[in-house]
Nucleic acid binder design. Structure first.
Length: 155
DNA sequence: GCCAACGTTGGC
DNA sequence: GCCAACGTTGGC
């Protein structure tokens, strides 16, 4: 069992949106970065995910989710009307994949990026490192536990 | 296979 | 809206 951090712009799809979604579940379409895709392909059912709000004020972790479906082709890559359309994707070679994630619970308190940066136990976390723009990245189980602790536990 | 130009991400 | 840090693209 591994742990991950996944970024979403709350204006597009926030953790609250995930909590309100049918089955508290959504497909994570639109990843168009090979490293991020490869991380999704490594995910296993039940892996814990820190749900991070990017391009937000402030940015930070809003809640915890879990992997609810293993990686499968991202159909939006083959939809010309989609923002995520990629003409190189074909039925044989979909190129891009996605997982489904399901909300577990919100943090009692939102944990801002500033708080993540301030905790020495999280110094190695990729998300606090400058210039790290991956939308899907691994975290250790220890880091996940620290973030939950900073958030006052799960709500 | 190099690398300059360009596009995107995402904090500020 | 700015811009640094990357990733991708495409000419050569």
């Amino acid at each position: 069992m591994r742990c991950w951090l996944m970024k979403s712009e709350p204006d597009v799809f926030s953790f609250d949106d995930l909590m309100r979604a049918e089955g508290r579940t959504t497909s994570w379409e639109g990843v168009r970065n090979y490293r991020a895709r490869n991380f999704m392909k490594e995910m296993e059912l039940g892996d814990r995910v820190l749900y991070y709000h990017s391009n937000a004020d402030p940015p930070g972790v809003a809640g915890v989710a879990e992997v609810a479906r293993l990686a499968y082709p991202d159909h939006t890559a083959r939809d010309p009307s989609s923002d995520y359309y990629d003409p190189k994707a074909t039925a044989d070679k979909p190129i891009w994949e996605m997982v489904d994630i399901r909300a577990v619970a919100p943090l009692r308190r939102f944990v801002s990026l500033d708080e993540l940066k301030a905790d020495p136990r999280l110094a190695a976390m990729l998300v606090v490192q400058k210039g790290q723009r991956l939308s899907v990245m691994p975290v250790t189980s220890e880091e996940l536990a620290v973030v939950i602790e900073l958030g006052g536990g799960l709500g």
